[in-house]
Design a protein around this nucleic acid. Sequence first.
RNA 1: GGCUCCGUAGUUCAACUGGAUAGAAUAACAGAUUUCGGCUCUGUUGGUUGAGGGUUCGAAUCCUUCCGGAGUCACCA
Length: 595
Amino acid sequence: MEKLEHKLSQEIKKAFVELFGNELDEAQIQLQKTRKEFIGDLTLVTFPFLKITRKSPEESAKLIGEFLEKNCDIVNSFNVVKGFLNIEATPSYWIDFLNSTHQTDRFGFAEPNSKERVMVEYSSPNTNKPLHLGHLRNNFLGNSVARILKANGHEVIKVQIINDRGIHICKSMLAWQKFGENTTPESEELKGDKFVGNYYVRFDKEYKKEIASLIESGVEEEEAKKKAPILLEAQEMLRKWEAGDEEITSLWKTMNNWVYSGFESTYQTMGVDFDKLYYESDTYLIGKDKVLKHIETESFYKKEDGSIWINLEADKLDNKLLLRSDGTSVYMTQDIGTAIIREEEFHCKNYYYVVGNEQDYHFNVLALVLQKMGFDWANGIEHLSYGMVDLPSGKMKSREGTVVDADDLMLEMRNTAQEISEDLGKLEGMDAADKDGLFWKIGLGALKYFILKVDPKKRMMFDPKESVDFNGNTGPFIQYTYARIQSILRKSDSDLKEVKLDIKLLDKEDINVIKQLYNFPEAINDSALQKSPALIANYVYELVKIFNHFYQNTPPIVKEKDDNIKNMRLFICNKTSEVIANSMSLLGISVPERM
RNA sequence: GGCUCCGUAGUUCAACUGGAUAGAAUAACAGAUUUCGGCUCUGUUGGUUGAGGGUUCGAAUCCUUCCGGAGUCACCA
């Protein structure tokens, strides 16, 4: 099936030779989609060509339009509005297109593994507290981008690095030692991550208490923050950990495992997974060796105290520490090491890091340092920087208790879905387990769609009230449309493999739906290039709106007497529902047969 | 303070990356269908795209100066 854009470009090229004696470069021809208020499918803007045509915009457009109408059999008609040439394809082109989707249920997807291997890193939490709303955006984005890249033909490896060591986990460990009284997640009937998170909070409470009493006894605030005994103890614990102290190591393992099992259950609810996990405790020493190897290279230097730096002033960045004076690694060093390990293991074309935009600077530096080390593949490093999630009350702050917990939020969405569904009472005869699964589908669909429809780069507002709305541009609205189509298909029970498609049967409403189906491959491609699930969300919403319009303005299909028309419409319904389901699955959202 | 990013209907978001009269949703109001699922469809109201200047056939988009907001500038991660 030759793309409309491609075919028309070639014809336009011919038109320029014929009409104006000019050989155009195909890249110069930019066809855009015709806006809804005009008749046509694709539009050629003539302004850039006026120097070649030496005629007015209107006249140029008219000449080209006439040429196309005469010489190109897929052009049905054209019209000119102020120098914009709107071109309409023939109904038979759309029929041919629809026919071409007959064979496959993977319409729009590129051949698997036809493109380069890429890696997507996302999630990458600290192990001292539970996941929250910010992590949800991260995980939904990362998982969706991975699916989209895969759909676009890439081999995709999903990874995360778990920040399992450092002062933060020591704080939780210390608080548990002091106040835990040998309780466990099991004994308290708490998820492991929540359990450990409580001790992190407990640490902070004690720490503040100590600071306050130090200040009261006359110590300066800055000094008090550094000298609080419980903090010193935590730092001592970190030193012991790094020295391999047995008791500390064993406690560390126990507490991390509690956290992992908690995370695992959260990931399962979210519906995300990974092909490979990296642990900071495994990789944090590796970057050090790599850095030391390059100490002689330009830009790298050593200070008198033994610390190692890189000078990036030539690239308009500043000097960056890579190894501390005591020889230990910093965050940057670990990321350098991890990046190198990944390259050695997987040789990817691109390494995508789904990390919040507060780390823009960090990733600029990371890519640059690796390039200075002479790694060509570092050019493939790309930071998929996304904006923070704000609440109506403002920014989330863990210390002020305004953090929205991931598990709580997902459960709340599920429960809201239940309330609404039960009010509508469409679920008679469904057993309890199926109902439960359905409520999760709807609740999570609402949440994921709400977050993913926004351009990742932009900061977004999360209003819990609005997110559970099931009307308008929402996940459940799209799911509902899917379920309704399934209901039609169940009732009619035709064999769609034998459907004969004929131009004479086509109505305007049918064509509108077909045209939007036609846009699906492009939507996948665009969202893959931009790494933006929002483009898929916008696409499928538009499809659903067009379909609902079709549905409203078409006589009941199930009762249609003309079998040819009936089967054609059913075929369109079926294709639409398939594209809805596939679009939603790219967002990590599943669609229900009933709801 | 230096650097980076962002300011679009009351609100939440779009705008095919420089194209036409800046579109949806939501809220409010008015209507349609009421026998394929009313979680549907159609309409009305709502904008000096933060402000000024510039670039050009053409600017929400590019350049520039202000105003407002966020992030970042750690021997934290």
